[in-house]
Design a protein around this nucleic acid. Structure first.
Lengths: 337, 337
DNA sequence: TGATAGGATGTAAACGTTTACAGTGGCTTG
DNA sequence: CAAGCCACTGTAAACGTTTACATCCTATCA
């Protein structure tokens, strides 16, 4: 349908090889000829046919991104980071989101196969067995925020454990003795690690108690519900650490409905530091995760893997998190470390 | 690098044509042969080479999605809608986001050209002149939430005007006489239309006043700032309508800091109905926009345009919005229409 | 029995590039 | 002046598919 290199060649009075050399700036070409070709290409609005190019070079300059069924800001941020980094190096991104079931993932994998030079997989819910089976083994892969088994894949994780540990210790340092924890979605890697951080810190201090762990699934609604349970306990917990900000927001709303003062009667903290956290009342103490940086870093790794096709050694990396202290924990931010 | 159709053919003891017929289920093939081919393909883990396919069929089964520099939930939601709809029909999506400048768009357009069967463009900030110049004129395009000029493109817009009109009238009906409005980002189509709805409603009621329009840019921070100005006015407005929820959240936080009761002293409303709105305190009265449905609908239109390649007549459509009444406007939700 | 139809399969051209290789011609060098 | 080099350009093969066309075979029908 479109203009082909042949027509440009004819228009410019040269061979297709020369046009190709001009377009890709490969091989020597006389200055006058180059200008003639460029003019012809522009006049005809020539755009190289991507598929034909890919066929011969066996490069697609496209990165596949496989995402779970992600809601809210997290999704946007991670994509932003990925896309910006990819654009910088001239890569496109082919995204496929909303995968819950194993069969979904397999289908998506199949479909992407052959259309991408590398794959970025984020799937905190699923194990990666499904990958093994459905992937051309030559395809570079970077795992983002997945549970890792061996050293067969490059992986990048958030320091969920460290962040939860720091937050729990922070609350303990403030003198809280009964700290309730609202768990994230079950089977989710992030959720598990955050829980682990909470447990280690509270057990260390001798303050752990099974009843203080409440169910949640990362949704605002589940945070709301968890508060109902927490308020029914006696003695009532003096602090509530939600495994993400969305649940902390739900908790805050439930506490207000119940007429419980935050942080006066109960301290509340979250995890993620989504942009609104700062504007809640009281502003939420939480753990900051550089989400878009995470995406960008993973992408950088993937591009690296794609370009130096040699057998790089796989690496596991962890992106740092840090505590951001606002009012909801009861501490005056100015006193924050 | 991978397994080709030839190797499958050899393995199965047939010609490549037969393998192709089996893979695509085109043309007749004996049942026994079919099974032999399928077995061979599975054994070799054969995956057709996408580029080669595209080259010959001149279809990429990929849709390009061009997005502005979008933050927050809006982005996620629209992508979710697009991706789910695209997956349903077997299309991939190639996304390119974070475009502010005209040159960015042009570059992205060039890059996508030839790699997609159709293009979904969302760019409320920019005019579409840039499109005209850089697009293969044969490429189907659907404009999402863009300012429209003629009838040369299919377009899909949110009923920003209607929503803002309804919200303004709602506040007027509650007896508010001084309703401040926090504008969205300047030059943004959505922002303009929402402002227009506010103006028409207030002027209709004889309550419009230039000073009641406050600057904003859709960010929480700008909502926060707008409140400072609103509180300095005298008489003070009794209601504040922010052009989106993020600004309403910023406003809520500033009002609380200033010790102003919502909705007792000032009613606050937003626009978008992002998921957290329900969990704010007080829960936010806002205008609901089916964001992911919007994305899905636009995608459906694009696929339609791609598949029946004939010269369809372009359509302009508007997605409805509706008022969702919660506590922040002072009206008890149960009384809502 | 011979003609005919049509199911099953194979052959080879085409899609639009890139690139190895083979020329050209002009210039330098011995 | 021959030889060699270099900058420039063209020719044609290759990439992995799909598909029009040709071929073969078997079954049906007059």
């Amino acid at each position: 349908m479109g203009i082909t290199i042949k027509e440009v060649a004819r228009e410019a009075g040269v061979s297709v090889a020369t046009v190709s050399r001009v377009i890709n700036d490969s091989g020597p070409v006389n200055e006058a000829t180059r200008r003639r070709v460029e003019r012809a290409a522009r006049a005809l609005r020539y755009v190289p046919h991507g598929a034909a190019r890919s066929l011969i070079t066996s490069k697609t300059i496209t990165l596949g991104v496989l995402l779970p069924d992600l809601f809210g800001e997290f999704f946007s941020e991670v994509i932003r980071g990925i896309d910006q980094r990819a654009q910088r190096d001239g890569y496109h991104i082919l995204v496929s989101s909303s995968h819950r079931k194993k069969s979904d993932i397999e289908a998506a994998l199949q479909a992407m196969s052959g259309r991408v030079d590398g794959l970025l997989v984020m799937s905190p819910d699923l194990s990666i067995d499904a990958l093994q089976a459905n992937l051309p083994e030559a395809l570079p892969v970077v795992l983002l925020n997945c549970e890792v088994k061996g050293m067969q894949y490059d992986t990048l994780n958030i320091d969920n454990f460290g962040g939860a540990l720091a937050m729990s210790r922070h609350l303990l340092a403030l003198g809280h003795e009964r700290i309730a924890f609202v768990r994230g979605a079950s089977g989710n890697h992030d959720a598990d690690e955050r829980l682990r951080g909470y447990r280690v810190a509270t057990q260390e201090a001798g303050m752990w108690e099974a009843a203080l762990e409440l169910d949640g699934d990362f949704s605002q609604a589940s945070g709301h519900e968890a508060v109902r349970q927490a308020l029914a306990m006696s003695p009532r917990p003096s602090a509530l650490f939600a495994a993400n900000d969305a649940m902390a927001i739900g908790a805050l709303s439930a506490l207000r409905e119940a007429g419980v003062d935050v942080p006066g009667e109960v301290a509340v903290t979250g995890f993620d530091d989504i942009p609104i956290s700062k504007y809640l009342s009281p502003p939420l103490t939480t753990v900051r995760v550089g989400i878009s940086e995470l995406g960008a870093q993973a992408t950088a790794r993937l591009i690296e893997a794609v370009e130096e096709n040699g057998n790089r050694t796989k690496r596991k990396e962890t992106a740092p998190t840090h505590l951001v202290v606002r009012r909801s924990c009861g501490m005056h931010p100015e006193n924050s470390p």
